[in-house]
């Protein structure tokens, strides 16, 4: 079974083609990473996968719901009930404390009593190492903390599919390694599927089961997909100059 199926997806903004004809599959229960240089369209891809942006062409299926095309609206609503998303900026609700941020989905979609909600939210914040900061407002925390709180909020309802946009950017190596361990732990214990956007080479090699790599100059006039598969094999075997540049820092002259 595949959690996500992307076929022939193209995104254009005005005259610019951000990427063309991207196709890949994410299998159930794997950690899948979207790689690529800054500005190659990773966040754009993620926005399409979570139903915030309709691709110019192509079809996307997430957890069995088709979210593109004419009947896409229904699929998007059904899919959004089953996924968690962490945005690149964290996107925490500025008028609520971290605890209230994580409690919001619990309040709306579960019948837990208030102290039960608070206990679950505290535990989720503790998992990302923010157990001490539950009473702070988003304006009072650092960028790395906002990301981790965003992950805790995305995990609030224990969704089977989690999307994380650059979870480890801006984190110190220790916190970043702890986050990697959390992701692998959730994959192994709960069978959670992850789609992670990242540039951190160490993190990719540690967590990714498979990956897709986007590049701004995949085509002469457009960006696109240049490789996919097991990142360790790509590192060792790929002959594509940009893939080699990414994994081995061999910059083509």
């Amino acid at each position: 079974m595949s959690a996500i199926r992307v076929s022939g997806v193209t995104q254009r903004f005005g005259a610019r083609t951000i990427f063309r004809d991207v196709s890949f599959e994410v299998r159930d229960g794997e950690v899948f990473t979207i790689l690529g240089g800054s500005g190659c369209g990773k966040s754009t891809m993620l926005n399409q996968l979570v139903g915030l942006l309709a691709p110019t062409t192509g079809t996307i299926e997430v957890l069995g719901h088709t979210i593109t095309g004419k009947a896409g609206a229904e699929g998007r609503h059904a899919m959004q009930r089953e996924v968690g998303v962490m945005f690149q900026s964290g996107a925490l609700f500025g008028s609520m404390t971290l605890l209230e941020n994580v409690m919001l989905p619990l309040e709306i979609f579960t019948d837990l009593p208030p102290d039960g909600r608070a206990a679950v939210a505290r535990m989720k914040l503790g998992l990302v190492g923010l157990g001490h900061a539950t009473a702070l407002m988003p304006a009072e925390i650092s960028g790395g903390m906002a990301k981790r709180a965003g992950i805790a909020r995305a995990m609030a309802l224990d969704p089977p599919l989690l999307f994380l946009d650059e979870p480890s950017a801006g984190l110190d190596p220790i916190t970043s390694a702890e986050l990697d361990r959390l992701i692998l732990g959730l994959r192994d214990d709960l069978g959670t599927t992850f789609v992670v956007v990242t540039h951190e080479l160490a993190s990719i090699l540690a967590i990714a089961d498979r990956c897709v790599m986007l590049d701004r100059n995949a085509f002469p006039d457009a960006g696109g997909m240049i490789a996919q598969g097991d990142p360790r094999r790509l590192r060792d075997e790929s002959t594509h100059p940009m893939v080699r540049a990414f994994f081995r820092r061999e910059i083509p002259e």
Partner: peptide, 17 residues
């Protein structure tokens, strides 16, 4: 507007709120 710029509105949509 600032919630929109900060992607908080997007976050609501993806939380199916």
């Amino acid at each position: 507007g600032s919630m929109k710029v900060n992607q908080e509105v997007d976050a609501l949509v993806t939380m199916s709120i």
